[in-house]
C-alpha cells in the first residue's frame, strides 16, 4: 500500500510515545548506570567500568542457561505456531459452536502465571494429580522432580497447553478477516484446500502470524514464573533458564551490578533475534504477495 507522506502523523503517535517512554526510558537508563558500578546501598557505589560485563560473559553457568533457553524457545515456536494454525483452521466459523470454542480456548490464557505453575504441580503429582496418576497407571514411573528429561517434558506440555491458544486466537482472527470473495473465487477455480491455505489463507495471515511469532519468541525467552513455580529450575540445573538464573543473581545474591549487566546482554540477544525474525517475515511476505 502506498502511504501518504505527512510528518503531522507524529501527532497521532505522540500519546503512545509519551506513555510508553515514561515507563521505558528512565528504568532502562538506570539499569545501564547500575551495570558499570558496584552498588552497596543508597549513595554507596563505586565505578568499576566494564568489569561486570567481562564477568558475566565468562560465566559458564550463563552459557549453559543460554543454550537451554535457545532449545526451549526453539521447541516452543516449532510446536506452538503450526499447532495454533491447525486449530484455528479447524475452529467453527459461526454459530454457537464458534462462540463456545473462542471462550474455551481463551481460558488457559486468563490464569495468572504463578497459578499456572501451581495447578501443574498438583496436576502432575503421581499421587493426587490426574496426569501424574494416569501416566503412573500406564506403568511408566513419572516424577518430574527427579528426572531432568521428565521435567522438560512436563514444562513443554505446560507451555504448549498454556500458550498455543494465543497463536490459535490470533490466527483465527486473521482468518476471519479474509473476505469471503476470495474463497468463492478459489471454489470456482476448483482449488484444493491445500492451495487455498497456501495461496490465500497463509499470506493473509502474515500480519497476525508475525505478531504471534514475535510474542511467543519474546515471552518464551523471558519465561520465569511458570518454571520457577513448577520445577524451581531443577532437578539440578536442568530447567534453570536465563530468567531464573538472573533472579538468582539479582535477588538471591543481591549483586545489582552483574545482574544489570546480565539484563542488558539478555535484552540485546532478544532485540537482535526479534529484529531478524521481523525482517525475515516482512520480506517473505513481500516475495509472495
Amino acid at each position: 500500500m502506498n502511504k501518504w507522506e505527512d510528518n503531522k502523523a507524529w501527532f497521532l503517535v505522540l500519546p503512545v510515545f509519551i506513555i510508553v517512554a515514561f515507563s521505558a526510558i528512565i528504568p532502562l537508563m538506570t539499569v545501564v548506570n547500575y551495570s558499570i558500578q558496584d552498588i552497596f546501598g543508597p549513595g554507596e557505589r563505586v565505578f568499576v567500568g566494564v568489569e561486570w560485563f567481562r564477568e558475566v560473559l565468562s560465566d559458564s553457568r550463563l552459557h549453559e542457561a543460554l543454550l537451554k533457553q535457545f532449545l526451549f524457545s526453539g521447541l516452543v515456536l516449532l510446536i506452538e505456531i503450526p499447532l495454533g494454525i491447525i486449530i484455528a483452521l479447524m475452529m467453527p466459523k459461526k454459530g454457537w459452536s464458534a462462540s463456545l470454542s473462542l471462550v474455551l480456548i481463551a481460558l488457559p490464557l486468563l490464569i495468572p502465571w504463578n497459578v499456572i505453575g501451581t495447578i501443574w504441580i498438583v496436576f502432575t503429582r503421581p499421587d493426587i494429580g490426574l496426569l501424574g496418576a494416569t501416566i503412573n497407571g500406564m506403568g511408566i514411573p513419572f516424577d518430574h522432580t527427579s528426572s531432568p528429561m521428565q521435567a522438560w517434558i512436563t514444562l513443554m506440555l505446560m507451555e504448549v497447553w498454556h500458550w498455543t491458544p494465543l497463536v490459535a486466537l490470533l490466527a483465527y482472527a486473521g482468518l476471519r478477516a479474509i473476505p469471503e470473495a476470495y474463497f468463492q473465487a478459489a471454489k470456482i477455480d476448483g482449488a484444493s484446500s491445500w492451495a487455498v491455505f497456501k495461496y490465500i489463507q497463509l499470506p493473509k495471515m502474515r500480519g497476525v502470524l508475525t505478531i504471534a511469532l514475535l510474542l511467543r519468541f519474546m515471552d518464551s525467552f523471558l519465561i520465569y514464573a511458570e518454571p520457577f513455580v513448577l520445577t524451581g529450575g531443577g532437578p539440578g540445573n536442568s530447567t534453570t533458564f536465563l530468567s531464573i538464573y538472573l533472579v538468582k543473581i539479582a535477588v538471591g545474591q543481591f549483586d545489582l551490578g552483574p545482574a544489570a549487566a546480565f539484563s542488558l546482554i539478555y535484552f540485546l540477544i532478544i532485540l537482535l533475534l526479534s529484529w531478524l525474525f521481523y525482517q525475515v517475515l516482512q520480506n517473505v511476505g513481500k516475495g509472495e504477495a
Partner: peptide
C-alpha cells in the same frame, strides 16, 4: 498504517522492544 513520517519504522519497532526487557532488575528502578 496510513502515513509515512520521519522515523516511522524505527518508532514502530522500538515500541515492541519494550516487551523485551527481563523484569528482575528493571523492577527496582520501576
Amino acid at each position: 498504517s496510513r502515513y509515512r513520517f520521519i522515523g516511522d519504522s524505527q518508532m514502530f519497532f522500538w515500541l515492541l522492544t519494550n516487551r523485551m526487557a527481563p523484569a528482575a532488575v528493571f523492577l527496582l528502578p520501576f
